[in-house]
């Protein structure tokens, strides 16, 4: 097909009726749309982490609070749940690419349940945190980063939930398999972004002398 399109001596008409009506990965517009949205959110997260480091530079005023038991442990379990959710998400994408509806929705259900469980733990963590956003600048940047990530995970879980309702109850079309893949991009991002964020917010203070 590409040969005819690029050849100056190509026939006057290019019949596209034989082309598929959907595509996966970088071939699909929606995949690019979600990828660019991830780029925006990644820039936002990166700026908050840079802000953390910038504010930390004001050492004389910096009062790192070490998060210990049980807050740190609760946070680590959340990270583990997020990492664990990557596998079923990847499985759901693989099943979606093959057009296997049952496997897609079962794996997506598992991934969503793990994400929801992580959000439940986060609600507990919010109550455990020993400082507030208005305690000092560290509290501000901690809560802002924490809030942004919670918003990302919440968005991912709600989006997956909507997708699941569609896959179980709605009129499933071929293109919805592509939507599963595009949605997974956002989910991977909300898992990966929390690795450097946790390193800074939770583990960096442990390195400072008390």
């Amino acid at each position: 097909m590409s040969a005819t399109a690029n050849n100056p001596a190509a026939p006057r008409s290019l019949d596209v009726s034989g082309l598929p009506s959907h595509a996966f990965g970088h071939r699909a517009p929606l995949w690019w749309g979600v990828l660019l949205m991830v780029a925006i959110e990644a820039t936002t997260m990166a700026l908050l982490l840079v802000s953390y480091l910038y504010l930390r530079g004001n050492e004389d005023a910096w009062r790192p609070v070490r998060l210990g038991w049980p807050t740190l442990e609760v946070a680590i379990v959340q990270m583990a749940l997020l990492l664990a959710s990557v596998l079923p998400t990847m499985g759901a994408v693989r099943a979606a690419r093959d057009g296997r509806l049952k496997a897609t929705r079962a794996r997506l259900l598992l991934a969503t349940a793990l994400g929801a469980a992580m959000l439940v733990l986060r609600c507990f963590e919010i109550r455990l945190l020993p400082f507030r956003w208005d305690t000092d600048a560290r509290g501000s940047v901690f809560w802002m980063t924490f809030g942004l990530h919670t918003a990302h995970v919440l968005t991912g879980v709600l989006e997956n939930a909507m997708m699941l309702v569609l896959l179980y109850r709605g009129r499933v079309e071929e293109k919805h398999f592509g939507d599963v893949e595009a949605g997974a991009l956002l989910w991977y991002f909300s898992v990966v972004e929390w690795l450097p964020a946790m390193a800074l917010l939770y583990f960096d203070p442990l390195l400072w002398p008390t």
């Binding site: 097909m1 590409s2 399109a5 690029n6 008409s13 290019l14 019949d15 596209v16 009726s17 034989g18 082309l19 598929p20 009506s21 959907h22 595509a23 970088h26 071939r27 699909a28 517009p29 293109k175």
Partner: peptide, 25 residues
């Protein structure tokens, strides 16, 4: 380009670099 549906808002999606026809959406 021929072969696009006229009763739906169908368009041809092309590849990123060469703009070769890839699929319809």
């Amino acid at each position: 380009v021929t072969g696009l549906a006229t009763d739906q808002r169908e368009v041809v999606v092309t590849t990123l670099l060469d703009a070769a026809p890839d699929h319809r959406t």
